[in-house]
Structures are given as C-alpha cells and as structure tokens.
Design a protein around this nucleic acid. Structure first.
Lengths: 214, 214, 214, 214
DNA sequence: CATGAATGAGTCTTCATTCAT
DNA sequence: GATGAATGAAGACTCATTCAT
C-alpha cells in the first residue's frame, strides 16, 4: 500500500482565492469608510480599493449594505473576543475588581479602531435586523449575564436581566462617549474607569458599603 | 420724547407665509422620514408632501442636510423644553426625588415622537458639526450641571463635569434603549425608572445608604 | 369694461414644453430602435438622441419598457386610424370590394414605417399585458366585427366572433409576411392583394361562386 | 482493395459525454427560459441549472444566442417531424381531408410545449439570419409545396409558391393565435379546425362547391 | 476538457440642485 | 417669490465572456 497521502483538510486553491478576495473587500470597505464616510463609499470605489472588480464584489455580497454589515460583524467579532477574554480572566475575582476590568476591556475594545467605530456609530444606518449583528449583541448579553449569575449572591438586584441590560448599555454608552470626546485623554483614562466602576458597583452591591459601615 | 413708534416685532404677511412654508416643510420632512426612511427621503418628495415646489424648498434651505438638521433642531428644542420644565419643577426637591423626576422626564421626551426619534438615532447621519445641535447638547449639559451645583453638598463626587456627563449620557442611553426595545411595555415603565434612579442616586450619594444603616 | 381677454383653453407653456419633450423622446426611441435594435437601445442613448437628459426621460417614463410601449401605442394608433378610415370608406360597398380595400389598407398600414414595424415584430418583447396595446387590438376587432355585422346576410359563417378573429389574424399575418419578405416587390402587390382577397371572400361567402355557376 | 476499415460512426465515450452535456444545456435553457423569461435567463444560471460550469457551456456554444438558437432549432425539429409525419400519412388522401389533418397537426405541433413556444414567439429576439432556423422554415415550405404539387390538378391557384406561402403563414398564424388565446379550450378545438379547413379548402379549390351545387 | 472565480463595460435609475418662466 | 421641468453626475448592479488552475 502506498504511503498515506496527506489529505489533511486544506482549503482548495480556489477557496483560498475566494477567502482572500473577501478579506480584501472588507479591508477596503474599512479603508474607504474611514476615508470618505458611509454615504460617499460606493461599491465601485471599494472594489477598486480592494484591487478587485465590482463583479467580484457582487459575487460575494448582494449589495452595499451586506458588505458593510459583514465588516461590522467582523469588527464586532474582534471586540467580542476581547470581552470574552476579559470576562474569562476575571471570572473568579470579586465583583468590584471584575467590573473595573470589564470597563477597562470595553474601553480597549472601543479603541481597537476608533475611527471605524465612530463611523459605525455615526453614519452607518442601523441594520438591527441583520441576524449576525443581533446574535453578537445577544452573546455579549449572555456572557455578562452568566458572569452575574455566578456572583448572584453578591448582587442586590434580583432581576438579572434588567441588571445585565443596564450594565451593558451603560458601559457601552459611557465608553463610547469617552472615546468620541476625548480621543487622546490618556491621563483621564483611569479616572474615567474609576467613575464608571463606582457607578456600576454602587448599583450592583449597595449594601456592601452599608454593612461595612455598620 | 418722540412718539413711540410701534416696533413690536410683528410678522408681515409675507413673513408669516414664509414661516408657514418652513413649518410645512419641516412637518413634511418628519412625515417622509418616518414613512420611507432617511435614504429614500428625497427633497422632491418632501416638497410635494409639503404642498410646495422644490424651488421653494431651496428658497428656505440651502440643501437637504440643512433641512433635516432644522427638523432635528426643532425636535430637540421640544425635548429640551421638557427637560427644562422638569428641572425647574424639581429645583427645590431632594436629589433622589429630583433624579427620579428627571429620568421620567427623559422617558417622556423620548416618547414625544418615538418613530422620528428612532429614525434620527438609526438613520440620520450624525451631523455633530452642526452648530445648533451642539448648542442644544451643551444647554442640556448646563441645565443639569447647574442643578447639581445647587445640590453640591449632597453629592459625593467632586468632579461635577464628570458627574454631569455620566448622568446625561447614561440617562440618554438607557432611556433610548428602553424605548427602542419595549415600545409598549407600559407596565415595566415604573420598574425601569426605579432601577435607573437607583443606579444614579447610588452614584451621586453613596453615603446615604451607609448613614441610614448606621 | 375691458375687452374680453381670450382665455380659450390653451396649453400652458410648461405643458407644451412637456409635450414636446415626450414627442422628442418617442421620436428618438423610434430612431434608436431602428438604428441599433431593441437590446442595444439604452435609455441614455435614447435621451441623448432626443436632445434631452436621462432625468427628463424618467420624468415621463418609469422605465425603458414603458417608453417602448408608448411608442408602440403611438404607432398602433396611427395604423388603427388608417384601418378606421378604410372601413368607413367601404362601409357601403359590397363585401368583396370591401375586403379588397381592407387588405390594401392593411398593407398600407404595414408600410407606414416598415423598419420600425419589423423591429416591433422581431425584437420587442411582447408586452401583451400592457392595457393600451390590448385596447387597440380590441378596437380593431370591434371595427371589423361591426362591419361584418352590417353585412351579416351576405356572410355564410354564423359565428361572427370566429370569423372576425380569423379575418384579422390572417390579414395581419399575411400582410406582415409580405412586407417582411418582399420589401420592394412593387409589382407583386396587386397579385398579393388578389390572392388574399380571394382567400377571405371565399371563406366569408362560399355560396357566391356556387350561385354563379348555376 | 484495402481491408475495410470500420468507420461506422460510433460515438466515443467522450463524444457521448459531450452529447449529454449539450442536451443538458438545452434542457436547462428551456427550463430557465420558461421559468424566468428571456431577459433574465443568464448563461450562468443556465449552466448552473444544467449542472455544468459556465466554462463548459462556452465549450459548446460560442455565445448566448447560439445556445438559444440551438434550442429553437431542436424544438423546430420536433415540430417539423410532426408535420412531416402528418403529410406522409395524408399523402394519398383527398385535399380537404389532407388539409384538415395538416391543421390538426399544426395545432398539435403548437401544443408540444406551449409555454416554450410562447416564449419563443414573444420574447426571443428573432434571429432570422441564423442558418439553421431558416433551413427549417424552408423545409416546411418544401414539404407543403411538394404535397400541393402532387395535387396540382385539384388546385385552382396556378402560383404554387404563393399558395404554399399563404397556406403555411395562415395556418401558423391562426394556430398560434388559437393556442395563445385559448390555452384550455378543449371543446373549441374541432370547431376551430373546421373553420380553418374551410378557409383553406375554399381557397385552394373554390370550384368544388360550385360543382356540388350543379 | 472542466471548473468557476474574476472581469468590467455597460445598464438602468435616482436625486440634489438649478433656472427659465 | 413661486414653480416645476430639466439637468446630469453618480451610484448600484448585471452578465456575457475569459482564463488560470
């Protein structure tokens, strides 16, 4: 019998080419988006920037929105990974420390590509309906909720869903606003994290302070 | 002394007609925006809806953005008035009560025209540069900050700017999210206000709980 | 009292301008159609040929098909007028003479703009659903049927609908084929008319021959 | 004399595969044509439907038109066979019976694949220039003409070419119209055939009636 | 020979804006 | 000032066809 031919599942040449094209298109979309904004980002321009023909663009994305949505999804996936890692690291720590770490992680997440993030926030029409994006939001929710569940006893609020929702929304909003308004406030970073942490910890475990005082 | 010339600013007939046209255009913009969305809202369509010719539209607004910006401004002005009134009413009340009232006011504000609000939030490209809009945001900030200043002694945080910023951003984000996700959760309303109030009061006066316990 | 100002309903300037634009567009469509065929006739090319902007084209016609359909309708209307006139002229003549005149009229109709006619026949996708075109076909049917009804006693067939249908279809098909295949057979024209007349008269009044023989 | 080399045309394996691919492509073309119409029938879609790559399609057909032309040709060949068989069967019968049989055959021919037939008639740009299609038309003409020639003495018209032309065109037009307008008029079928037969027999042998009357 | 990713010229269509009336 | 017909740049998208693998 002949020597076993290595057939480890390898992407066929064409599959790799496809993948490369898709990546090039997403990169180009990001570049064009940051350079000229959403409205002036045409599919033709994106294709040219990607070094690919418009036809190829439409081979992989049915329309402009889908293209941008895919980019958003990719971006969100990266961010989600940061959040996931952060939560994993703090899984065993006490709540205040964990919250602080999470806020820091959220801030880092917002700084992955701030320009792009800003574009997404300010210009890209919300396509909440897009399944993938919603899924990512739901996963973030779940990750946080799961963590809170483990710490349930330390938390005063009984409605975990509400607490999670408030947590996620608040962190997102404050982080976002901080990054938008102080793009280079390196010094303020820690103070900002302190404040937000205080806000959230005070919400989740108000008794703590009380008991101590007693 | 010369006879007082009546200079009480009185709109001339044509001035009034102008004003009416402008109002009609803004109303039409709102209607078209909510009906077909930002991208498909063309100036021609808006003009037709307003019962006015496109030419007239351009008589009053240099371009499409200015038109939308004016609508946003008008909408914000209404909302700001609600906030102003609310703050005035609670000026003398204690902080928890005041915060609760403000959250309620913010919620009301978001419910003035939820559909339009959603469109603004999700579809209208942010025109942060537009002077008038920025001014309104600044005024909101100032109103809240002024209130906090009066209550300074009850507040633990020393950095009032930071506190104001956090307050405004958080209330805005949570309120917005609540309205978007639960367009008809009448029952949840009070629980929502409770939670947000607790979050913010806990942040502004953490000692309170402690002292009481003692 | 001042002299009565003549207010005979006259097309306003803009209405006339509109009408002129539409006419120019239809003429251009005909020209482009005959020059490059249906498939290569683009709306942009038509607009340029008409000396009008594409935008104007779309002001009056929602799409290419509508434009072509309007042209077909205009062409059919001209042809229908020929048929109508011919039928009116022969209304009082005996059937054989009338049929011959009608065939001649049909032939003339097909020669109004043979190139265009050929394009319509060979290249333009049938849009049978278009109301106007169907209406014209129905009117032709009615005109012929009405004539036959008047001559009912001379006709052997009892089913007038069937007879009309056969008449119209046959004349149309034969005339069309003659024009297509012999674009310049001037001499054959009379012989052709003879044959078709014989075909149809033989169908409508077979007894005639018989009686004569007796 | 050299040993006879077996040249009996035998399809090689690959030749058979080729043939199968071609058939698959034609079938797919028919299916796509009937499903989405001519304009939306793209070569890519046809290839996919045929379970073949676009590249292969172009291996066998130089362009889209050739593909459709081949399908038309195949369809016409089937129809022609029906006509041929019908004429063979009636070769020895008297003219009225023969004509009736032919009309029936034409009707059957039109019902082979009415949807496809309709598409050809209404949507496919005439490609009269295509040699094969013209050849088929000429053969139909010849078949009919040959039959008429055999029956020459019974026919009054002297110009056999003209008679053939009129016969073929008329039958084609009437049959087509009948199929298009009454897709399910089972009952009318016989009456229709009667009428058309009467039309044509009356044309070919007008004396007949006369004689009878005597 | 088969494959199917890539191509890109060419379409249709929209819409903010202008300007003659 | 009002009107609305006209403009035309620009964009989204298609599809017959090619060619590297």
């Amino acid at each position: 019998m002949a020597r076993a031919i290595p057939t480890i599942p390898r992407k066929s040449a064409s599959q790799e080419r496809s993948r490369a094209t898709v990546e090039a298109l997403l990169d180009a979309t990001a570049r064009v988006l940051t350079r000229v904004g959403y409205d002036r980002a045409s599919t033709n321009r994106i294709a040219v920037t990607a070094g690919v023909s418009v036809g190829s663009l439409y081979q992989y994305f049915p329309n402009k929105e889908a293209l941008v949505a895919a980019l958003v999804a990719r971006h969100n996936r990266e961010i989600l990974q940061l959040v996931r890692d952060a939560l994993e690291e703090v899984a065993s720590l006490d709540l205040p420390t964990a919250v602080r770490a999470m806020v820091a992680a959220a801030l880092d997440a917002h700084l992955v590509d701030p320009t792009l993030h800003r574009i997404f926030a300010e210009q890209v029409p919300r396509m909440g309906q897009l399944a993938e994006i919603e899924a990512l939001e739901r996963e973030t929710f779940q990750l946080v909720r799961t963590y809170l569940e483990k710490r349930r006893r330390e938390i005063s609020t009984k409605d975990l869903d509400a607490a999670t929702s408030i947590l996620v929304t608040t962190v997102e909003a404050l982080t976002h606003q901080f990054v938008i308004n102080k793009p280079d406030a390196h010094g303020d970073r820690d103070r900002f994290i302190d404040e937000v942490t205080r806000l959230l910890v005070g919400y989740l475990m108000p008794r703590r302070t009380a008991k101590r005082v007693k």
